[in-house]
Amino acid sequence: MTAITPALLQDTGALRNHVGARQLLSNTLTMAWRGLIKIRRTPEQLIDVTVQPILFTVMFAYIFGGAIAGNVQQYLPLMIPGILVQTVITTSMVTGVQLREDMDKGVFDRFKSLPIARIAPLAGALLTDTLRYAIATTLTFATGWVMGYHPAGGFGAVVLAGLIVMLCAWSLSWIWAFFGVIARSASSVQGISMIVLFPLTFLSNAFVPADSLPSWLRAFANVNPVSHLVTAVRDLANNGQLGMAAVWAVLGGVVVVATFAPLTVRAYMRKA
């Protein structure tokens, strides 16, 4: 009986009408913990960051390697950074899809009725997703390694390249989170994300050298932020150089976050 005896309303002075930074952090970590349990319960939701990087890396290398670079070995330094960026960025759209599914569930009503930081479910989801990016990044480089890709830039440069890709994917996930908040169904979020991502990742220098493209397409590929990110990864992994491309890529990510984080948070708070 002790468990359901209510606290009597004696000291209302301990009640506060705002959430402090410590509680925000604690709530966010708890929400991320919930995300991890969900992954453990349904490991199949990791397919896009486990099977897909391996499958696509092997497929693309053997299909296009001969045609584009003469042989598979010479294609790998061009293609591994490309496929890495494509895989990790594509997986970022899961954020929006899962957020929509989550917000439609009954448990979200309870979150709303709890005295927690309103933004914690969103922040926790974005945090958990960095794990997905880390898995995809690691597996893509590992597959490349097995196929004979030994980045000349060295281990440190590869890790830095991976971190930049993860940062950019995390930035983009704010866009999908925004659609996740405002869209009516999870499948429409997926649809919107695909329409944006598919051209963006393919109309770039990810799989072919940009100068092999017709001029109008090359113009687009050259300004495409995905191209900058791919170039940044190539510079780092293959040459150990941190160039302007990396600066553009990170700057692009910052701009996206600066634009979409307030939009998403505002739309989210209106619904949450």
């Binding site: 309303l9 209302t12 009640l15 506060r16 009408n17 705002h18 959430v19 919930r34 349990i37 969900k38 319960r41 349904t42 569930k105 009954g106 448990v107 979200f108 009503d109 309870r110 009725s113 709890l114 005295p115």
Partner: peptide, 29 residues
């Protein structure tokens, strides 16, 4: 308990428990 649901919502949330028509617990946990 004297606290406004609009302007003092965070306090109100510390004073209430809500059990919905459809169980609001996490299906995956």
């Amino acid at each position: 308990f004297g606290f406004d649901v609009g302007t003092e919502s965070q306090i109100v949330r510390q004073l209430i428990g809500v059990t919905g028509q459809y169980a609001s617990v996490d299906e995956n946990l």
